[in-house]
Amino acid sequence: MKLHLTLHDARSGRESFRVVRPASPPAHAELFDDSWYLNAYLDQEAAQLMAGLWTLAASSPRTLVHLPLRTAGGGTPGDRALDLVLLHHSLRFAPARWKRLRARLGPGRPRTVDLRPPRPRPREETEGTHPRHADDRDRFHQHIHAETLFLTGSAPLFRRNAELFRDVARSGPAHPRTAARHGHYCREVDCGIHFRGLHIQYVDPADEQD
């Protein structure tokens, strides 16, 4: 999978940070904070992009992966539209610094990353990953600041959850359209007992036009 990105370097205080963004934000992708859940609505293309970005976050621990998602519409009254930032915990970036750093990013420069197909995961990454048995220390930490959801985690954690987005991209379009009356195709990023889950829902753009 090829990711077409924009690469940015900016300083915050005495430190320099690298930020990557998609060269073109997805046309059908939204993220909302509805107080009970964090809800992401994605079509197939957006779900594939998200899978790629989460894989990139796993392999780029010194980089902030930023996906602008805020839109003028969508959601329900009271929902707050959010952007998304993925970052490795070793970066130790404080979300309170984001607004100033974001303002300094500039136009950036183009870059294309060719992501290799997922390899079989080591046993230590796959054992005990059921929500009831997962080590709670290896869960996403989440913060919301400056209209942005920050998800901070480990490389194995990003790799595991990239598979959820691949599944939504693969299985969402095959979900019977008639099921829309009874439910929808979705997966959830489990953030443990201390944070809300990220509910990922497949949305067919054709249904939005009906």
Rank of each mutant, 00 (worst) to 15 (best):
A47H: 05
L86E: 01
A46C: 07
D33Y: 08
Y37N: 12
G73H: 12
A94T: 10
P95V: 13
R100W: 00
P107E: 04
L105S: 02
L115E: 03
R109W: 06
R80D: 06
R62T: 15
G78W: 00
E30S: 15
L64W: 08
F93I: 07
A46H: 07
V65T: 10
D83L: 04
Y41S: 11
Q44S: 14
W36V: 13
R62G: 15
R100S: 11
G108K: 04
Y41G: 08
W36M: 15
L64Q: 05
G78V: 01
A47D: 03
G73Y: 08
D34A: 15
L105P: 03
H88L: 09
S35T: 07
A27V: 14
V113T: 07
G78N: 09
G52C: 01
L82I: 13
G78H: 00
R97H: 06
L67R: 02
E45R: 15
A29N: 08
G106E: 06
H66W: 08
G75T: 02
T55S: 12
L64G: 10
A51E: 12
A72R: 12
H88M: 05
L53H: 05
A103Q: 11
V65D: 02
E45T: 14
S90A: 15
S90L: 09
L69E: 10
D114Y: 09
A96H: 07
R104P: 03
L84E: 05
S35I: 10
L87E: 12
L38S: 05
L86F: 00
A72I: 00
A94F: 08
A103M: 09
H89L: 15
S60D: 08
A96R: 12
E45D: 14
S35W: 09
L105W: 01
P77I: 04
D79R: 11
H28P: 07
W36A: 14
H88T: 09
G75R: 04
A81F: 05
D34S: 12
G73I: 02
D79M: 13
P107K: 01
L67A: 03
G74E: 04
L91I: 06
N39T: 12
A81M: 03
W98G: 10
L31I: 10
L31R: 13
R70I: 15
W98Q: 02
L69F: 09
K99P: 01
D114Q: 14
A103K: 07
N39G: 10
R92I: 06
R111K: 15
R104D: 04
L56W: 01
R70Y: 11
F32D: 11
